[in-house]
Design a binder for these strands. Structure first.
Length: 419
DNA sequence: TCTGGGGTCCTAGGACCC
DNA sequence: TCTGGGGTCCTAGGACCC
């Protein structure tokens, strides 16, 4: 049996942990820049507030129902997530952390129903007691069925074990668009062929799904039939790319503004790369104008690097060079991003047999400088040592976060106090 | 005025090679 | 008149997830 544990309305629940006065009140959490609604408490969901809706279109309604609004506080959410996952791991050692608020749990084949129910009950109560976060748990024969079970558990008080005998009944009442891996486009396509429930989808023939949809959708079909084909990733797989980007409040139109923006993204991406102990061999930059306005335009440039890079100033220079090739002065760019690809472990790198002694010395110097920079940053904070090319501003400085809650658990100044 | 960000995987099509 | 075929690699774009 495979379980899926999910933190209920995670971001909203995190905000409520330190604000018990918000019990019973609708809460919404906004995306970066306070742009969209990305999480809602159960109360807000019941009022019909949709995930992904632009905040500015819902502001009046939210005020009218006395909703509490928060900017995203990822430092807080990630820390609480770590605490939740530590507790879950103590009960079920074989777990795969799937996202900030979800994990798959893998149980022995022969585990009895009563044992699973007992385990689920103690797991759920301990997580809530120790962290303040309510969680729900669903179990099924595959990851996809565990997702279905978890969704159904919301109606069953937070736990549901989807046994094979119950699958047909539950899949009949599960809309096909709510399945894991079936998004809007695929649901629309299936709907146009008269397929609206998970059961109708499960009864399709393999060749038809492969022909009209993708092989991934075929895996979803097999999983619904109880064949577990989406594998368990008990250790996090190495990352394949790193993206750093932001949507600016006011358009960037000059080359010097764009150089600084790209330097900031490149620096932040390079820091993540160092955290992964990896090097990159592809770098690309993209610049987009407002996609909701006329004359939407995007500029993109990818570079295949002649040798892998890890040294932040090298990455910053490559990003700026790529940007300058496609930058069009005067266009009102608002979205800018740097993407590092072709990631490989830094220690697996082979030296160049034919490189000069001078080159070897300079590479060694860069390596030691990078280590020193990481040391400074880890001790004095991310902005303690930055490239001058960034204009000495961080991404966070440029973001709009009007409703940010304190970093209660990760910052000395923000620790709650009753004095 | 305001409409996110960071990931993964798949597919189609072009370039290139033998 | 007729203009191979199969493999690989890369890129761009689409779809999906949270």
């Amino acid at each position: 049996m495979i379980g899926l544990i999910d933190c209920n309305s995670f971001y909203a629940s995190c905000e409520r942990v330190f604000r018990p006065d918000l019990k019973g009140r609708p809460i919404v959490v906004l995306s970066n820049n306070d742009g969209c609604i990305v999480a809602q408490s159960a109360e807000a969901k019941r009022m019909g507030i949709a995930r992904g809706a632009p905040y500015h279109q819902n502001r009046e309604f939210l005020e009218s129902v006395n909703a509490e609004v928060f900017s995203s506080n990822y430092a807080l959410y990630q820390d609480i997530s770590n605490r939740v996952m530590d507790i879950v791991r103590r009960h079920v050692p074989r777990l795969e952390i799937y996202s900030i608020d979800e994990a798959f749990l893998f149980f022995e084949e022969d585990q009895k129903r009563e044992g699973l129910e007992r385990l689920a009950a103690s797991l759920r109560s301990e997580v809530e007691r120790c962290t303040g976060i309510p969680v729900s748990l669903g179990l099924g024969r595959s990851k996809t069925l565990a997702k279905v079970a978890e969704r159904h558990s919301k109606r069953e008080g937070g736990f549901f074990l989807l046994s094979p005998e119950k699958e047909e009944e539950i899949l009949r009442e599960t809309p096909v668009h709510s399945l894991w891996g079936i998004g809007r486009r695929k649901a629309d396509f299936l709907g146009s062929r008269g397929i609206t429930t998970a059961l109708e989808f499960r009864n399709l023939e393999d060749w038809w799904v492969k022909k009209h949809l993708t092989v991934v959708t075929l895996y979803t079909l097999w999983e619904l039939r109880g064949r577990s084909v989406i594998s368990a990733e008990l250790a996090p797989p190495p990352r394949k790319e790193i993206v750093s980007g932001i949507t600016a409040r006011t358009p960037l139109t000059t080359l010097s503004q764009m150089r600084q923006a790209m330097a900031r993204h490149a620096q932040s991406a390079a820091a993540k790369l160092a955290g992964e102990k990896a090097v990159c061999s592809l770098i690309s930059v993209s610049m987009n104008t407002n996609r909701f306005k006329e004359n939407y335009s995007q500029s993109y440039k990818g570079l295949v690097l002649s040798r892998p890079l890890a040294y932040p100033p090298d990455i910053i220079k490559a990003a700026i060079d790529a940007m300058e090739e496609v930058f069009r002065p005067g266009l009102p760019y608002i979205r800018t991003a740097v993407n590092l690809g072709g990631l490989e472990p830094a220690d697996g790198l082979e030296g160049d047999l034919f490189c000069s002694e001078e080159f070897r010395v300079s590479e060694e110097r860069k390596r030691r400088l990078s280590l020193a920079q990481q040391e400074v940053v880890s001790r004095f904070g991310r902005m303690a040592l930055v490239s001058g090319a960034t204009g000495m501003k961080s991404k966070a400085d440029l973001m709009n976060r009007d409703y940010l809650s304190p970093r209660y658990t990760t910052c000395w100044e923000d620790i709650p106090s009753c004095l």
